[in-house]
Design a protein around this nucleic acid. Structure first.
Lengths: 223, 223, 223, 223
DNA sequence: GATGAATGAGCCTTCATTCAT
DNA sequence: CATGAATGAAGGCTCATTCAT
C-alpha cells in the first residue's frame, strides 16, 4: 500500500499538490479566519465565508477547529506567536545609542508589523476584548506588556547612560507606543472611510523626532 | 442642529408630537443603547437588553426606531452631537499662546471626553467601521476631521506666531491626537484585562510636554 | 394596566379566546411533544414537528422551554404527575379482600393508564433511559418504585391476613407488574407491526386469575 | 436461511468473494454496531464510534454496508438468526411433561438469551419500531410470533395431555412470555437507574411456579 | 402609546456519506 | 482493501421584528 502510494507519488504531478494542500489546510483556514474576523468582528463573521475563503466547505473547518470560538482563539494565538518573535528579533538585532535604537525600533516595527497583516490584530482585540476577556488578557500579557518591557528597557538604558532625562518611564513607554497602535488601529478601521490620506512615513518620523526631543537631556541635538 | 430642532418644534402640528416622543422615551433608549452597544458591540447587543435597561419592552423600542441599525445610527449621531459642541466650546473658550491653548485643549478633552462615557465611542466606531461604512464616514467627517481642523488651527497659529517650528502640520496633528485616542480606546477595551495600571494624568502631562518640546522653535524653554 | 385588562376581558367575546389560548400554550406544546417523542424517540423528534402539532412555529416553543432536552424533561415530569395521582387514587378507593383489591387494581390500571396516552411513557423511558439517566432515575423513583410499594402493600396485607402464601414479596411484586408493563410497552411499539391481534381484556383477566391462583394459600397441590 | 446461504456460497464466482468479506470484517463491525445501537439507539449511534470499536475507519464500514440503516437492518437480522436457532434448539432438546418442558424453556431462555447480549435486542426493537416498521415486522414475525408458536405448542400439548386446563392459549402464551421480555427490557434500560436490586432467579422461579399453578388442571380452588 | 406573544430567517454545528489516494 | 479528508444536508437555537390586544 505504501509502495503503491510512493510509486504513484514519484510519477505524476498532481499527487503531491493534493498532499501539500492537506497539510496546509489549518494554515489556510487561520489566514482566512483572520481576514474575516478582522473585517466583520467575531459575531458577524460567518463560518461559511471563512471556509469559502480558505477554499473549503463549512464542515471542513470543524475538522480542525472545534468551534467558532476555538477558531478565533487559534487565530489570535497563531498570529501572536510570530509577532512575539518579530518583536524580539527587532530589539535583539539593534545596536548603538538608545536614541538610535528607539528610531530603529519604530522603523522596524512599522516594516514587520504596521505594514503587514499583523497590524490587524490590535483592532480585533480591542473590538472583542469585552467578549473574550481571557483572550484579551493573553494578548495584553504576551504582546502589550512584553512590548512595554522592551521599550522600557531601551528608555531605562538611555536614562542610565545619561542620554535621556529621568522621566516617568511607565508614562513614557505608553507615550512611545500609543502613536504606533493608533496608526495600526486607524488604518484597519476608519482610514478606509476617511477622505483625507495619512502619510505614515512622515507621521512616524515626526513621532520619533518629537519623542526623542522630548526625552532628550538638555540641549540635545536631534535628527 | 440644536437651533434647527427648536425652530421646528415651535412651528408645525405633526412635527411636535413626534419630537416630543423622541425627547422623552427615546432619550432613555438611546442612553441604554449606547451602553449596550459599547459594551457588547453591534452584533452582540440584544434589543431586549437595551429595552430592559431603558425600562421598556422590546416592542416599544420599535415605536421610536425602525430597526436595530437605525437605533445604532441614532446612538452614534446623538452621542456625537454633544461631543462636537464640547470640542468647539473648548477651543472657543481658550486664549493665550498656542502652547498654552494646546495644553488646555488636552486637559479639557480628557475632562469632558476621555473621562466620560463619550470616550467609549471611538472604540465602538473602530470596531464597527467595516460593518457600517457610511456611519464611519459620518464619524470621521463630523468628529475626526473636525477635531483635526481644530488642532491644526492651533498648530498653524503657533507656527504663524513663530512659536512653533514649521513642521508638517498634517502629521503633527495626527501625532497630537493619537495618544488621546489610544488612551480612550485602550481604557474601554484592554485595560480591564491589563494587570498593570495606567496613570492617565501623568501620561497626558508627559504627552503635552513632549509634544510641545518637539514642536517648539529652537531653544524654547518649556513647562 | 391591570384594571384596563380586566375591563376588556369582561366585555368582548373575541378577547378571551386569544387569552385562553396563550395560557394554554405550554400545555399544548407538552401534549404535542409527548406524541412526537413517543413516536420518534428523543433524537429523531424534530422541534419543528412538535411546534407544528402544537399549532405554533419553531421559535415559540423556545419561549416556554429552554431547549429540546428541557422540553423532554418537562414532558416526562408533567406526564408523570397525573399518573402518580391516578395510581394513588386507585389504591385509596378500593376496599375488600386483598385478592379483590388486586383484581380491581389491575382493572383500574388498565382503564386509567394502559388504555390512555399515559401508557406511552414506559416505552419512552425504556428507549431513552441510557441517554437521560437522571430522568430515568426520576421515573424509577417516582413511578416504578412507588407502584411497587403499592402492590407490595396489597400483597403483604394478603399475607398478613392469611389470604396469601408467604412468598418472596419483591419477586411477586415484579411478577404482578411485569405483564401490565409488557402489554403497555408492546402496544405502543411492536403491536402495530404485529399481524396477530392481542386481546388485552382476556390477557389481563388471565393474569389476575393465574397470579391469584399462584399466590393463594389454598390447598392447591402442584409441581 | 442458513442452508440457503451455504448452497449459494458453494456455487457462483462473484458470490464467494463478497461472502468472504461479510464473514471476516463484517462480523466485527456487526458486533460493534450491536453494542452501539443498543447503547445509544439508532439515531444517537454514530458511525465513527461503531467503526472505532470494530477497529476500522469510518469509510471501511461503507465497504460492507450501504448505509447506516442497512447496517442496522443487518445487525437485527444477524442477531436474530442465532437467537432463532437457540430457541429452536431449546425446544427441540427438551423432553418430559409439558410442565417440565415449560420450566426448562424458561430456564434455558434465561441462560442463552436473558443473560446474554441478545437480551438487548427487544429493548432496541421496542425503541425503534416506529422508525423501522418493516424491521419491526420482521422481528415480530421471526422472533415474537415464532416464540409464541413454540410456547403455544407446549401449552397445547399439555392441554391435550390433560395436564393443563383448557385456557385461552393466545392469552396464556402472552402471559408466559411477558415476564421474560419485561425482565430483559428492564434490565437493559431502567435497571441501571434503579436503586432496588432485582433477583432474576427468584423472579423467574416464581413466574414458573405461579404460571404452572395457574394453568394446572388440579383441583385448585381460586377466586 | 405600550405590551409581549409569536414569528421566521439565519447561522453554528453535527454527522452520514463520498472519494481520491 | 483501507484510509481519512472533505462534503453538505439537516436541525437546534437565537433574536430582530411584527402585531393583536
Amino acid at each position: 500500500m505504501t509502495a503503491d502510494r510512493n510509486s504513484r507519488t514519484g510519477s505524476g504531478a498532481h499527487g503531491p499538490r493534493w498532499r501539500r494542500r492537506r497539510e496546509a489546510r489549518p494554515g489556510e483556514i487561520l489566514e482566512a479566519a483572520l481576514q474575516v474576523f478582522v473585517q466583520r468582528g467575531f459575531a458577524q463573521a460567518r463560518m461559511e465565508e471563512i471556509a469559502r475563503r480558505a477554499g473549503v466547505t463549512k464542515g471542513t473547518v470543524y475538522l480542525y477547529f472545534a468551534s467558532k470560538e476555538e477558531l478565533f482563539r487559534a487565530v489570535v494565538r497563531e498570529t501572536i506567536t510570530p509577532q512575539l518573535e518579530l518583536i524580539e528579533r527587532i530589539v535583539a538585532e539593534h545596536r548603538g545609542s538608545a536614541a538610535e535604537l528607539f528610531r530603529q525600533l519604530v522603523r522596524r516595527w512599522w516594516t514587520v508589523v504596521g505594514e503587514t497583516e499583523l497590524a490587524r490584530l490590535p483592532k480585533l482585540m480591542v473590538a472583542e476584548a469585552a467578549n473574550f476577556p481571557e483572550l484579551a488578557e493573553f494578548f495584553v500579557r504576551e504582546v502589550v506588556q512584553r512590548a512595554r518591557g522592551i521599550v522600557g528597557g531601551v528608555l531605562r538604558r538611555g536614562i542610565a547612560a545619561g542620554e535621556f532625562r529621568e522621566v516617568d518611564v511607565e508614562a513614557a513607554v505608553r507615550l512611545a507606543v500609543a502613536p504606533l497602535l493608533a496608526a495600526a488601529i486607524y488604518r484597519h478601521s476608519l482610514l478606509p472611510c476617511d477622505s483625507e490620506p495619512w502619510d505614515f512615513q512622515k507621521y512616524l518620523d515626526l513621532h520619533v523626532e518629537f519623542f526623542l526631543r522630548g526625552i532628550a537631556r538638555a540641549e540635545a541635538s536631534h535628527d
